[in-house]
Each structure stands twice: as C-alpha cells, then as structure tokens.
C-alpha cells in the first residue's frame, strides 16, 4: 500500500507492507535514533511524536501514520542538544540507548506542561525505562534544565 508521511518536516511517499510497524518504517527512512528495547510497549525507547503527541512506534502500524506528521530526534536536534547537555552534565546518559526515547518524551512533556512538579515528571516519564542510571541523574537533569529555563 502507499502512504505519505511528513517525517521531520519532509514529505515522504512510500509503498509499504500492511504489517510494517512505524518503528521499522522510520528506521528504514534514516531515523536511526528510534530504538527498539522490548517489542511489547513497555520500555519507551521507540517514542516519537505523531501529530505532536508521543506514541510508541513499535506499537503503531506505519499505515496508521499515513497523512500524519512525525518527529523523531533527528528533527529535533536543537532541543535534543539543549536538554541533552543537562543529561550529559550529570553523566546520566550512560549507555545512551534509552536516551532518544526519553528525550522525545521529555520534549513532549514540556510542551504539554511547562512547569511540571516532581510527581508529574515521574508519572509522565514512568514508561521510559532506563537500566543504567537509576533515574536520579535524569531527574537532576530535568530539574536543572527547568531551573535554568526559569531563570532566563
């Protein structure tokens, strides 16, 4: 079947199999930041923005993205660098494999809620697993980022 998707601001027309998953479609189209961690929508690594909302691309058919606008970290490099620097300053990126999905969801969270409370942060990001960091360093990064942004 044929679909048309706007990936990171560019219109892409493709012929795809009906059972192709969005994650594989995006990786085939060069969005290699999108990672697969579990296949059962438990880990959050494959998070992308679909029409502005975070979705788990391992659990969405590419066909369903027809006509929609998708953003991956490749299309949000400025935001990734801005917030990512705070993660890196904690050493909390560690192996890095969960970082793109985590940072996508942080971007989504901050678009919905500019000043989340500690509990709101933990709840919004509860589906983004990280096996390396114990989450504290990621939390410090978010808090420092919010504090710096607030000071501006």
């Amino acid at each position: 079947m044929n679909i048309q998707v706007k990936i990171n601001g560019k219109n892409v027309k493709s012929e795809i199999d009906a059972d192709l998953l969005l994650i594989d479609y995006l990786r085939d189209n060069g969005c290699l930041s999108v990672k697969r961690g579990c296949e059962t929508s438990n880990c959050g690594l494959c998070t992308v923005l679909m029409n502005g909302k975070p979705v788990l691309s391992c659990s969405v058919l590419a066909a369903r993205a027809d006509g929609s606008e998708i953003y991956t970290l490749e299309g949000l490099q400025k935001e990734a660098e801005e917030f990512g620097t705070f993660v890196a300053n904690q050493g909390a990126e560690q192996c890095g494999f969960c970082n793109p999905g985590f940072i996508m969801n942080v971007i989504a969270m901050l678009r919905e809620n500019e000043n989340p409370t500690d509990d709101e942060i933990k709840e919004y990001l509860a589906g983004n697993l990280c096996r390396c960091s114990g989450y504290e360093g990621q939390f410090r990064a978010i808090k420092n980022f919010l504090a710096q942004r607030g000071a501006k």
Partner: peptide, 21 residues
C-alpha cells in the same frame, strides 16, 4: 572531577552509533 563523557553529546542527540545503526 565531574568530566563529561567523550561520547555524551552523540548519545543524547540520538546519533547512529550502535550496532544495528
């Protein structure tokens, strides 16, 4: 000292540096 990892920015920006990439 709290030195930033040499590969940190590549990792947080989602660069294709892992095996399947």
């Amino acid at each position: 000292k709290p030195i930033m990892k040499k590969d940190a920015m590549a990792l947080v920006m989602g660069k294709p540096v892992y095996l399947d990439d």
